[in-house]
Design a protein around this nucleic acid. Structure first.
Length: 423
RNA sequence: GGAGAGGUGGCCGAGUGGCUUAAGGCGUGCGCUUGGAAAGUGUAUAUACAGGAAACUGUAUCGGGGGUUCGAAUCCCUUCCUCUCCGCCA
């Protein structure tokens, strides 16, 4: 959520930047600013009336004490009018504030200057490519066939016990999954991210805090009985640890990592992209988050990008880094880098990580602030990134490392799997 | 699920309608004291909005919302949360 003073001072810039998202926001923004003027005026007259009324109440108290009941009753008449007026103003103020916040909830984050224009993923900018392409002297099989052949993942039994998009990992498939989680967690630990195991459900306030609510309500599983949401990413519970917190400057940077299953309804996404592990309702992910001083967040973003590159290098996967265009940028992000690995059998790139600087967008909703050197309260910056999402890594590892009689495990993973080949 | 007790500042905790501008304590910041430290001692120490160049001022906030009253931390209604005991249970 954008801050009103920021909108007031940067109206034209924001409108221009929103065109990167193909968003025509001029009306909404001007309405927000107009409502803010109304809010100020209303609050001023309400405050004045309340101040007057407080003064009278004190006088009345003193008059009663000194036994001057008649004069006290005269003053009471005056307060009646003030009370009516101020309570009307209070109602009006609430209406204005509600209208204003509803508009604010509609506005996404302002894209960073370097975010390219564009409508869809076709307009994302490819920044770099790494690793070598796999070549096979046999017909490479897609991961769903390999998973079946070697008994690693059972999609059908997942359908039976839960539904499509809830695979069951078996044997070495399960072990490989667990190995990857441990590998990612250890790497995060080595990079200074403190490990967290958060709740897998969050309440409504947390959903609002990180920006999943109110606009992406349909993407989360909702436990109606208890009014809780299954987390779509560990970013939600971990970042919400810092909701309503005022940090000291010396607390920066805060670096946390967490492994959690993630739950996404993926309403409305069907078709060929959903085959196998490509798109699931439940998947595992190790997330890294940072909370930084505003002046340090882009430096932190670079470090997070480097961390993810390191993971993919160690796994020996061919990958590329993209700078998302405005049209593909998530609601809360000011800038996002995506990482895609090449799936040799499907002959396509698969997104395995998304790293974003959210700047103050979440911090404003979370009331995540810090006291600066002058003793003033400021909003912190939040960042998050997947490091990494498991299913597509698993898919690429299976496909890219297949040999005629099995699947080789990358060297870095062998200490975790305790086997170097699936056959 | 049943029964009960509670939600007050960074923390503990007093506070049954105006003497609260929230006592007292702890913690923390800055002084004084000291050869140095401890102890002692003085002082400061919430957030939001508005006005102001600033000092500062006004308003709101004692879990949230609403009400009674000239006046509410205190009384009433409502809602959320926490804790204890019982039941169930890894």
């Amino acid at each position: 959520m954008l801050q009103i003073p920021y909108i007031r001072e940067n109206r034209d810039l924001i409108i221009e930047r929103f065109t990167k998202r193909n968003l025509e926001a001029i009306e909404t923004i001007d309405e927000i600013l107009e409502l803010d003027e109304q809010r100020k005026g209303t609050q001023q007259s309400m405050d004045n009336d309340l101040a007057e009324s407080n003064k009278l109440a004190k006088q009345i108290g003193e008059l009663y004490k000194s036994g001057k009941a008649v004069e006290a009753n005269e003053l009471k008449e005056q307060t009646k009018l003030l009370k009516e007026k101020s309570s009307e103003e209070k109602t009006k103020l609430h209406e204005i504030e509600e209208a204003q916040i509803n508009l604010l909830y509609q506005l996404p984050n302002v894209p960073n200057e370097i975010v390219p224009n564009g409508n869809s993923d076709a307009d994302n900018k490819i920044l770099s490519e790494h690793g070598e392409a796999c070549t096979f002297d046999f017909d490479a099989a897609p991961h769903w066939d390999l998973a079946k052949q070697y008994g690693l993942i059972d999609f059908e039994v997942g359908v039976k016990i839960a539904g499509a998009g809830f695979p069951v990992y078996l044997g070495k498939g399960a072990k490989l999954q667990r190995a990857l989680i441990n590998f990612f967690l250890d790497e995060a630990e080595n990079a200074g991210y403190g490990e967290v195991i958060p709740p897998l459900v969050v309440n409504e306030a947390s959903g609002y805090g990180t920006g999943q609510l109110p606009d992406k309500e349909g993407q989360m599983y909702h436990v109606g009985e208890d009014d809780l949401y299954l987390i779509p990413t560990a970013e939600v519970p971990i970042t919400n640890i810092y909701r309503n917190v005022i940090l000291k400057e010396s607390d920066f940077p805060i670096k946390k990592s967490g492994y959690t299953p993630c739950f996404r309804r993926e309403a409305g996404s069907y078709g060929k992209d959903v085959r196998g592990l490509n798109r699931l309702h439940q998947f595992d992910k190790v997330e890294i988050i940072q909370i930084t001083h505003p002046s340090k967040s882009y430096e932190a973003l670079d470090h997070m990008v480097d961390h993810i590159k390191g993971l993919l290098n160690k796994l020996g996967l061919q990958y590329r880094v993209l700078l998302l265009c405005g049209g593909d940028l998530g609601f809360t992000a000011a800038i996002t880098y995506d990482f895609e690995v090449y799936s040799a059998a499907q002959n396509r790139w698969l997104e395995v990580s998304s790293v974003s600087n959210v700047e103050t967008f979440q911090a404003n909703r979370l009331k995540l602030r810090f006291k600066n050197k002058e003793g003033k309260i400021e909003l912190a910056h939040t960042l998050n990134g997947s490091a990494l999402a498991l299913p597509r890594i698993m898919a690429a590892l299976l496909e890219n490392n297949q040999v005629e009689d099995g699947i080789k495990i990358p060297e870095e993973l062998v200490p975790y799997t305790k086997f170097d080949k699936i056959d």
